[in-house]
Amino acid sequence: MRTTRGLLRSPKELGFRLLLLSLGALLLLSLERTGRIDPLESALAGLISPGQSTVASITGRVAELWRGAWEFRRLQRRVAELERVNASLLVENLRLQEVERENQRLRELLQFAETRPGIQLRGAQILARPIGFGTNNLNDILLLDLGRRHGIQVGMPVVSEQGLVGRISEVTDTTSKVLLITDATSIVNAILQSSRQTGVLRGRPGQNPVMGFLPQGSPVSVGEIVLTSGLGGRFPKGIPIGQVVAVRQQDFEIFQEAEVRPNVDFTRLELVAVVIGFDPLEFVPVLDVVPEEVEGAPTGEAEPAPEPPLPTGQGE
């Protein structure tokens, strides 16, 4: 008969330990909520982030090698002899492909910056990439390798070459956290590119964000491009957010809603840029080809739409 130390201990002792540790956790929670351990957290983040950066880089390379290995096997079946001769070249080739992909991303990011002269960008590499959800599946957070020392401040927008990623929610000296637009607490003022309807885009964990406060009767069609409206001045105007994939309209409700699929593939983000300064009044053309109905409009929105009512929460 097997016994263990845990079984021999009394429930009283277990309860005491549970109580003690729970109180400790609650104390930490309350200290963090009141901001009293921010300096300590900041110092610890400074210690941890280099390690995270290194491991993130290693796992990225391992993942690339893993993918490369699968590809290698497939090709090996087809040209086994040639593969044996060129195995070392293949490894080198994989490395160069990765460099090329990085170059491509950087070129796209540069192009993004060049088409928006009013926006000052700062590139950042993602250290920890919690696919959408921090270290759990509920928070949509990214960790960046730029912090207060690099001029990063809470509230700064974060973009990629595909469009809006989110905004800085917390900053330490060397790192910063990005609240993605898919996070439940994220709110962005948005505009539909064709119909020029403004609304508020709210994130939903595990699902596409929803653009709400769209007046009933206004024409909202599936496939419409969603951009930042610039209202409130928190995000530059005209940054692409996504595309409408569904419209929910019920006669008894004041507003209709549009489900928006983000342009950015958050699972594949490797490089992002933090907007460290922008002119809130500047309208940024999003597409090379401007749709016909917008062509005649002056720079900016045709008519300034009223600020839609904001629900409670962080963000714009």
């Binding site: 729970s22 929670l29 963090e32 983040a45 995270q52 919690p130 921090g134 270290t135 928070n139 960790l143």
Partner: peptide, 24 residues
């Protein structure tokens, strides 16, 4: 319980959750 408390602190430090939340 000890492992949970310690692991939770690490998670929150690295992942950005409310400190102590993952421990609970």
């Amino acid at each position: 319980l000890l492992w949970a408390f310690t692991g939770g602190i690490w998670l929150d430090l690295m992942g950005g959750g409310p400190l102590g939340g993952s421990s609970l």
